[in-house]
Each structure stands twice: as C-alpha cells, then as structure tokens.
Design a protein around this nucleic acid. Sequence first.
DNA 1: TTAATTGGGTGATATATATCACACTACAAT
DNA 2: ATTGTAGTGTGATATATATCACCCAATTAA
Lengths: 210, 210
Amino acid sequence: MLSKETLTKLFPDWEDGLYDAILNVAELKEAKAGTTLLKMGQNIKSAMLVVEGTIKLYQEDETGGEYFMYHLNPGEACAVTLVCNYHHEQSQVLAKAVTDIQYLAIPIEFMEKWLNEFKSWHYFVIKTYRSRYEELLKTIHEIAFKNMDERLEFYILKFVKQFGAIVNLTHQDIANDLNTSREVISRLLKKMEHNGWIIMNRNSFDWIKK
Amino acid sequence: MLSKETLTKLFPDWEDGLYDAILNVAELKEAKAGTTLLKMGQNIKSAMLVVEGTIKLYQEDETGGEYFMYHLNPGEACAVTLVCNYHHEQSQVLAKAVTDIQYLAIPIEFMEKWLNEFKSWHYFVIKTYRSRYEELLKTIHEIAFKNMDERLEFYILKFVKQFGAIVNLTHQDIANDLNTSREVISRLLKKMEHNGWIIMNRNSFDWIKK
DNA sequence: TTAATTGGGTGATATATATCACACTACAAT
DNA sequence: ATTGTAGTGTGATATATATCACCCAATTAA
C-alpha cells in the first residue's frame, strides 16, 4: 500500500496537498522485469512515476529496431506522459521495465489541473523535462559523432553507474539496445578484453577499466 | 523599439504583467545571419526569445563536428536558456542565426522569479521543453535508424517547410549540418536529381518531389 | 581579360559496420 | 548420458560512408 512516508521520501520537494492528491487518484501498479510499459504510437492514458525499480527508455523504429536512451529511477517520471494537453496523445518512446517495478499511474486528466494547483508539481514537470532533454542531447552526441566502440563504452558505463561493475547482459541484449548486431558487439568486447578493460564470462562480464 | 503590441502578437497566451516584466528587463538584440549566438560549453547569461528571423540549433562535437537538430522561429525560445537554476550553467547546444534576427535577452536571474510569479511563463517554459524534447526524439530516430539518403531527405524537407521549395544551400552547407562530407551529399543529390525529386542549380536546388 | 576562388562531379580506395555462415561450448532439459 | 538451446567466436563478404585526388565550370576579384 502506498503511504505518505513513501511519497515524501521519493519526492521530497513536493507540497503537502500534492501528496494527498496523489494518494487520492494515483494507482500503485506493479510490473515484472522485461514488461513493456509504453509502446511507440500508443495512446497515453496516465502519467507514470517510478516508485521502485528501474525503467529503460527507448526510441523505437517502425521496423522493430530499438535505441536505448536513458534510465528512469525511483522518484523520477516519464516526461512524455506528464504533459498531455490533448487526450489520445501518442507516445514517442518505448518504455520497458528492467527490474521488477512499482509505479504510480495518474490519469492524465489531473495533469493540467495540477499544473494550476500545485507549484511543486509545476517545478517537478519542468525539472523532469529539463533533465530528459539533456539525456537526449547526450544520446544525439553519441550517435552523431561516435563510432560503435565508443558508443559501446558509454553504454557500459551507463549500466555500471546504474547496477555496478558486473554487467549481466548478453551480447545480443547490448546489440539490441544499440541497434546493431551481436557479431559487432562480440568483436568489440573481445577488443576490450584484450585491452584489459573487461573480464568476460558467459552471460556477463566485469568492467575493470582503470 | 520593443512594443507591447509586438509582444502580444508573438506570445498571445501570456498574462499582462509578464509583458510589462519583459519590457522592463529584456534587452532587444540584433544579430546578422551566420552569427553564432551560443556555443557549447559557454556560460548562459540570459534567456533567448526569438522576435524576428530564424535560428538553427545544433549539437556540437569537441572536434568541430556539428549536427543540426531544429529551427527556432519568432515566438519560440531556446529551451536550454530558460531553466538555469545555477549560475554558470553551460550550454549543451550550439545556436546560429540563419537569417538576420532580433531576439530578447532576459538575464537568467529572472527565470526562477518568473516561474513563481507568472503562470503563463510557467506554461511557456513547459510548452517549450515539451516541443523541443519531441524534436530531439525525431533527431535520434533519424540518426539511429536511417541511412544518409533518408536523413538528407528529412533535412531537405525541414528546410522546405521553413523557407520554401528553393533550397539555397551548398552541398558543403548540408554536409556540415549532417556531419558528413560534401562528396556524399553531392552523390546523393545526384541520385535525387535522377529520380526527378530535385532540379539542381549552382548554390541551390528546387525540391519538386510529388 | 585574366587569375583566383568557390561549387560541384567523379573515380579510386579505405574503413566501419552489416550480414551470412558455421563452429564451438556451457548449460538446461529430458 | 543425451539432446537441445542459448551464448559466443570468427572468417568471408557486402554495403554505406569517409577520404583522397583531381578535374571542370561558374562566379568573383584583380
């Protein structure tokens, strides 16, 4: 059950009335690791705030390709779902649960209302957009200017920052996230192994650079 | 000179007090076509609202590369300059005037203040971030999934939407904006010419597809 | 008018990545 | 113990793009 204590810990900057509003209208939902929470083109019915676990945000191609952009952690929100002026607004991103997660679903009817009502909500929305905008800039920087070896390194570093130095991903997982093929990732990881940046195991490797 | 009439036309959704605040503290500046308005890494001293002309926003590489992301038109603002919680915040984007422009420079001290004071300013900031976030998503989609021929077509279409079907850009201009080389653009344009999508001239071409 | 500069065309070659083919190994299922 | 499957390694080849070299044509400067 969702408590006010949990909320104050997750969202320390909010005003009191906002916690009450959330408790009234938000639904606490759960999802298993691997679940797709939001598909591209899907109508957005509710805002999504992360309570527990980690979500990965992707850009998705019509032909099935995916490109990983950033992680969402507890206390963070999916930016695209926060401002839906018009109903039937469609998602431009793909969101997947990486771990088992808990999240708050708030019907989008309240978004416009809360922007008027709660100053701290307003700030939260702006803060969210600003930080995600910056993540997208970084993503563009990597794809536009870097080769796959550097992009792979950035990718691994993002993972390590999130989950620690034991990277339990298969080569295929990584290839999917970077919209390339397993062979390419395998060869580049071999190089990193030769350079002494990683120690490879089956289903995982350890990041030991520096 | 900046008049209230001009402001109400450019920013019709604002509240009255906000126009006055702008008139008090904003400086109306001018810049010639081609001027660099904001460099990556540069400290942001003022928010930038476009009054007249068009600005192009880029992601910039340390080694001199550039990647064009989107246009800014009159009535729009540069998102990164709108929310600078801390002074000495550095720009993550490169902004260049495409045409001669006029813009409003508002010292960033007022940003935090206005968020509190003016509801319409708050909305403006959110609207700005939301729309630019979406532009970045489109950019990622193109770089991550499309080959140069399709990216070139998207690029031309953005230009045509802005300025009309006569594209007065050199091959080198386009190559710079897409972080590729002139030869690549020349060859792809030749293909488009063969396909009957464009008519080429020196220093320009006409987009006649469909 | 001549020279210089800029924009553009195009072959040859290099490189990064994608794709195909297949082999090998660890582990799980039976 | 046998079989199947998922994860990985690696050569061969294809393709997209980058880079180099050089040419020519149009425009501008002298």
